[in-house]
Amino acid sequence: MEELSLHILDIAENSIKANASFVTIEIIEDIDTDKMEIEITDNGFGMSDKMIEKALSPFFSTRTTRKIGLGLPLFKDTVEACEGSIKLTSEINRGTKVYASLRHSHIDRPPLGEIADTILMLVISYPDRDFLYRHKKGNREFTFDTREIKEILGTEVSINHPEVRSWLLETLKSGEKELN
Protein backbone atom coordinates (compact mmCIF):
# COMPACT_ATOMS: atom_id res chain seq x y z
CA MET A 1 0.00 0.00 0.00
CA GLU A 2 1.31 3.41 -0.90
CA GLU A 3 -0.14 5.23 2.09
CA LEU A 4 -0.61 4.35 5.75
CA SER A 5 -4.12 5.75 5.42
CA LEU A 6 -4.90 2.91 2.97
CA HIS A 7 -3.77 0.33 5.52
CA ILE A 8 -5.96 2.10 8.08
CA LEU A 9 -8.95 1.88 5.73
CA ASP A 10 -8.30 -1.82 5.21
CA ILE A 11 -7.89 -2.60 8.92
CA ALA A 12 -11.05 -0.65 9.74
CA GLU A 13 -12.92 -2.72 7.13
CA ASN A 14 -12.09 -5.77 9.27
CA SER A 15 -13.84 -4.07 12.18
CA ILE A 16 -16.91 -3.50 10.03
CA LYS A 17 -16.92 -7.14 8.98
CA ALA A 18 -16.73 -8.07 12.67
CA ASN A 19 -20.03 -6.21 13.12
CA ALA A 20 -18.53 -3.42 15.19
CA SER A 21 -20.92 -0.57 15.89
CA PHE A 22 -18.13 1.71 17.09
CA VAL A 23 -14.64 2.04 15.66
CA THR A 24 -11.88 4.26 17.03
CA ILE A 25 -8.97 5.29 14.85
CA GLU A 26 -6.13 7.06 16.60
CA ILE A 27 -2.88 8.37 15.19
CA ILE A 28 -0.15 9.85 17.35
CA GLU A 29 2.88 11.43 15.78
CA ASP A 30 5.71 12.47 18.03
CA ILE A 31 8.71 13.95 16.28
CA ASP A 32 10.70 14.31 19.51
CA THR A 33 10.68 10.59 20.19
CA ASP A 34 10.62 9.82 16.44
CA LYS A 35 7.57 7.67 16.88
CA MET A 36 4.33 7.19 15.01
CA GLU A 37 1.55 5.18 16.59
CA ILE A 38 -1.60 3.92 14.92
CA GLU A 39 -4.38 2.26 16.84
CA ILE A 40 -7.64 0.88 15.50
CA THR A 41 -10.06 -0.36 18.14
CA ASP A 42 -13.50 -1.87 17.64
CA ASN A 43 -16.33 -3.41 19.63
CA GLY A 44 -16.92 -6.18 17.13
CA PHE A 45 -17.20 -9.92 17.71
CA GLY A 46 -13.50 -10.35 18.35
CA MET A 47 -11.11 -13.22 17.75
CA SER A 48 -10.00 -16.27 19.68
CA ASP A 49 -6.37 -16.52 20.86
CA LYS A 50 -5.73 -19.06 18.18
CA MET A 51 -7.06 -16.74 15.51
CA ILE A 52 -5.01 -13.81 16.79
CA GLU A 53 -1.89 -15.89 16.41
CA LYS A 54 -2.75 -16.92 12.88
CA ALA A 55 -4.06 -13.59 11.72
CA LEU A 56 -0.69 -11.91 11.49
CA SER A 57 0.75 -14.59 9.26
CA PRO A 58 -0.33 -14.51 5.65
CA PHE A 59 -2.77 -16.98 4.16
CA PHE A 60 -5.24 -16.96 7.02
CA SER A 61 -8.77 -15.76 6.51
CA THR A 62 -12.25 -16.75 7.62
CA ARG A 63 -13.58 -15.43 4.36
CA THR A 64 -14.79 -17.98 1.85
CA THR A 65 -14.30 -15.97 -1.34
CA ARG A 66 -10.52 -16.30 -1.19
CA LYS A 67 -8.67 -18.54 1.15
CA ILE A 68 -5.89 -16.17 2.09
CA GLY A 69 -5.95 -13.17 4.36
CA LEU A 70 -3.80 -10.27 3.38
CA GLY A 71 -4.67 -7.12 5.21
CA LEU A 72 -3.07 -7.72 8.59
CA PRO A 73 0.13 -9.40 7.30
CA LEU A 74 0.54 -6.61 4.78
CA PHE A 75 0.24 -3.97 7.50
CA LYS A 76 2.65 -5.93 9.67
CA ASP A 77 5.21 -6.00 6.84
CA THR A 78 4.97 -2.25 6.37
CA VAL A 79 5.31 -1.58 10.09
CA GLU A 80 8.22 -3.96 10.59
CA ALA A 81 10.05 -2.51 7.63
CA CYS A 82 10.10 0.75 9.60
CA GLU A 83 11.67 -0.69 12.75
CA GLY A 84 8.22 -0.96 14.20
CA SER A 85 6.04 -3.57 15.75
CA ILE A 86 2.41 -4.50 15.67
CA LYS A 87 0.23 -5.81 18.45
CA LEU A 88 -3.10 -7.48 18.05
CA THR A 89 -5.32 -7.91 21.08
CA SER A 90 -8.85 -9.20 21.05
CA GLU A 91 -11.53 -10.68 23.17
CA ILE A 92 -14.46 -12.69 21.89
CA ASN A 93 -17.65 -10.63 21.83
CA ARG A 94 -15.86 -7.57 23.19
CA GLY A 95 -13.72 -6.34 20.39
CA THR A 96 -10.32 -6.06 18.81
CA LYS A 97 -7.42 -3.66 18.93
CA VAL A 98 -4.70 -3.33 16.33
CA TYR A 99 -1.80 -1.26 17.61
CA ALA A 100 1.22 -0.34 15.54
CA SER A 101 4.23 1.69 16.48
CA LEU A 102 6.87 2.66 13.94
CA ARG A 103 9.83 4.94 13.47
CA HIS A 104 8.55 8.25 12.18
CA SER A 105 11.64 9.22 10.21
CA HIS A 106 12.24 5.79 8.71
CA ILE A 107 13.08 6.06 5.05
CA ASP A 108 10.69 3.24 4.13
CA ARG A 109 7.76 4.65 6.04
CA PRO A 110 4.90 5.35 3.64
CA PRO A 111 3.31 8.77 4.08
CA LEU A 112 0.10 8.91 6.06
CA GLY A 113 -1.53 10.13 2.84
CA GLU A 114 -5.15 11.13 2.41
CA ILE A 115 -6.45 10.15 5.81
CA ALA A 116 -9.43 12.50 5.34
CA ASP A 117 -10.56 10.35 2.39
CA THR A 118 -10.18 7.17 4.42
CA ILE A 119 -12.32 8.49 7.26
CA LEU A 120 -14.90 9.93 4.85
CA MET A 121 -15.28 6.67 2.93
CA LEU A 122 -15.88 4.76 6.16
CA VAL A 123 -18.31 7.28 7.60
CA ILE A 124 -20.50 7.54 4.52
CA SER A 125 -20.38 3.87 3.56
CA TYR A 126 -21.49 2.74 6.99
CA PRO A 127 -23.95 5.38 8.17
CA ASP A 128 -25.24 3.04 10.88
CA ARG A 129 -21.83 2.68 12.55
CA ASP A 130 -20.01 5.27 14.61
CA PHE A 131 -16.43 6.38 14.22
CA LEU A 132 -14.14 8.32 16.47
CA TYR A 133 -11.04 9.65 14.76
CA ARG A 134 -8.26 11.32 16.67
CA HIS A 135 -4.97 12.59 15.31
CA LYS A 136 -2.31 14.00 17.60
CA LYS A 137 0.78 15.67 16.28
CA GLY A 138 3.12 17.13 18.85
CA ASN A 139 0.88 19.16 21.10
CA ARG A 140 -1.86 19.66 18.53
CA GLU A 141 -4.87 17.44 18.30
CA PHE A 142 -7.80 16.93 15.96
CA THR A 143 -10.87 14.95 16.96
CA PHE A 144 -13.76 13.91 14.72
CA ASP A 145 -16.68 12.05 16.23
CA THR A 146 -19.68 10.87 14.21
CA ARG A 147 -21.79 10.53 17.38
CA GLU A 148 -21.61 14.28 17.84
CA ILE A 149 -22.50 14.85 14.19
CA LYS A 150 -25.44 12.45 14.20
CA GLU A 151 -26.80 14.07 17.32
CA ILE A 152 -27.18 17.27 15.33
CA LEU A 153 -28.46 15.62 12.16
CA GLY A 154 -31.09 13.68 14.06
CA THR A 155 -33.01 10.84 12.47
CA GLU A 156 -34.30 12.83 9.48
CA VAL A 157 -30.94 13.51 7.87
CA SER A 158 -28.48 10.79 6.97
CA ILE A 159 -24.77 11.36 7.45
CA ASN A 160 -24.14 10.17 3.88
CA HIS A 161 -26.26 12.84 2.24
CA PRO A 162 -24.21 14.77 -0.37
CA GLU A 163 -24.63 18.11 1.38
CA VAL A 164 -23.43 16.66 4.65
CA ARG A 165 -20.65 14.88 2.81
CA SER A 166 -19.13 18.13 1.61
CA TRP A 167 -19.16 19.40 5.17
CA LEU A 168 -17.55 16.19 6.42
CA LEU A 169 -14.74 16.35 3.88
CA GLU A 170 -14.19 20.03 4.53
CA THR A 171 -14.09 19.41 8.28
CA LEU A 172 -11.67 16.52 7.97
CA LYS A 173 -9.37 18.32 5.56
CA SER A 174 -9.18 21.52 7.55
CA GLY A 175 -8.75 19.60 10.82
CA GLU A 176 -5.78 17.77 9.34
CA LYS A 177 -4.31 20.95 7.91
CA GLU A 178 -4.34 22.67 11.26
CA LEU A 179 -2.08 20.00 12.70
CA ASN A 180 0.81 21.21 10.57
Partner: peptide, 20 residues
Protein backbone atom coordinates in the same frame (compact mmCIF):
# COMPACT_ATOMS: atom_id res chain seq x y z
CA UNK B 1 -15.60 20.78 14.00
CA UNK B 2 -17.84 23.67 12.96
CA UNK B 3 -21.07 22.24 14.28
CA UNK B 4 -22.93 25.52 13.88
CA UNK B 5 -22.47 25.29 10.13
CA UNK B 6 -23.72 21.72 10.21
CA UNK B 7 -26.85 22.81 12.06
CA UNK B 8 -27.59 25.43 9.41
CA UNK B 9 -26.96 22.96 6.64
CA UNK B 10 -29.41 20.55 8.17
CA UNK B 11 -32.22 23.09 8.37
CA UNK B 12 -31.59 24.38 4.88
CA UNK B 13 -31.84 21.10 3.05
CA UNK B 14 -34.13 19.10 5.25
CA UNK B 15 -36.99 18.66 2.80
CA UNK B 16 -34.71 17.36 0.09
CA UNK B 17 -32.86 15.14 2.51
CA UNK B 18 -35.91 13.10 3.34
CA UNK B 19 -36.47 11.94 -0.19
CA UNK B 20 -32.94 10.90 -0.74
Amino acid sequence: MNLEELRKLKEKAQADLKVR
